[in-house]
Amino acid sequence: MSSVPFDQLDGHIWMDGQFVRWADAKIHVLTHGLHYASGVFEGERAYGGEIFKLTEHTERLHESARILGFTIPYSVAQIDDACRELLKMQGFRDAYVRPIAWRGSEQMGVSAQHNTIHCAIAIWQWPSYFDPAQKLKGIRLDMAEYRRPDPKTAPSRSKAAGLYMICTISKHAAEAKGYADALMLDWRGQVAEATGANVFFVKDGKIHTPKADCFLDGITRRTVIGLAKDRGLEVIERAIQPEELEGFEQCFLTGTAAEVTPVSEIGQYRFEVGEIAKTLMLDYNNAVQPKHAIAAE
């Protein structure tokens, strides 16, 4: 990733239907999305000039907004087209794509039914979420203090900005202790996910993953489950207790940013970077490549 601050990158950002210079993509300090977290976003990746599962991401952006009680004033097709056009304008083949929608600044207070709904897309180069060398050896996770909330207390099925506050706190705390990330439990004390990625475990050739009933059912998560089943691997979605970590042989994370990342350690528990994790990492890398690029090889 570039060492240049994000607000000083070059290029353009699509904002409310227009392409504007990166430095000119600004909002007012009293924007409702800043004060009350009334914003939703997506994380996507482009590989070889094509954005992986773009429409699926855009549909989820719309659904997240619906859950938060607002409607994005641009259709799925319009946002898809804007993402593709902006990718070309930026001149990137491999890049990270960040669409976001939020309530504006007309009203200040918890109630903001009449605020304008804004939408923007930014694209930048982001090679790897975790250190590439460490990723091959398996990253180390701490145990997070905060837990994923009860769905009755937060809109857990949306990719809403406010849900990531405890993720930032937890990741910062883990990094301060030398870890790459943190594993979060849910409000029941069951294993949930990492701060920005879903988690999988392997035991006796079977893959186990927490049931996504209080956190985001990631698009990468679903993709990797499909890839595993294509190989005849059994995938069990269930409640996982933290004491079960001692019995698992392998562990890996999945997410748009994380892709498929093996884990070697979670607190006191150790895991091998085994064949199933390595195979799914390779299968995912192959799956995200554009079909025309594969055909050309």
Rank of each mutant, 00 (worst) to 15 (best):
R140Y: 03
D142K: 07
M143D: 02
R148Y: 00
R148G: 12
P149M: 02
D150M: 06
K152T: 13
K152Y: 05
T153A: 11
A154R: 06
P155I: 03
P155T: 04
R157N: 13
A160E: 05
M165R: 09
I169V: 10
K171F: 04
H172Y: 07
A174T: 05
G178F: 04
A180Y: 07
A182E: 04
A182F: 01
L185Y: 00
D186M: 02
D186Q: 00
W187N: 05
R188M: 03
G189P: 02
Q190K: 11
V191T: 05
V191I: 14
A192R: 04
A192T: 11
G196W: 06
A197V: 10
N198K: 04
V199S: 12
F200K: 11
D204K: 15
K206A: 14
K206R: 15
P210L: 01
P210V: 03
K211L: 13
A212I: 06
D213S: 06
F215D: 09
D217T: 10
G218L: 09
G218S: 08
T223K: 04
V224W: 00
V224C: 00
I225R: 00
L233M: 14
E234C: 09
V235L: 03
V235N: 06
E237S: 13
I240L: 15
Q241S: 11
P242Q: 07
E243W: 05
E243C: 00
E246R: 10
E246F: 10
G247P: 07
F248P: 10
Q250W: 07
C251W: 04
C251V: 11
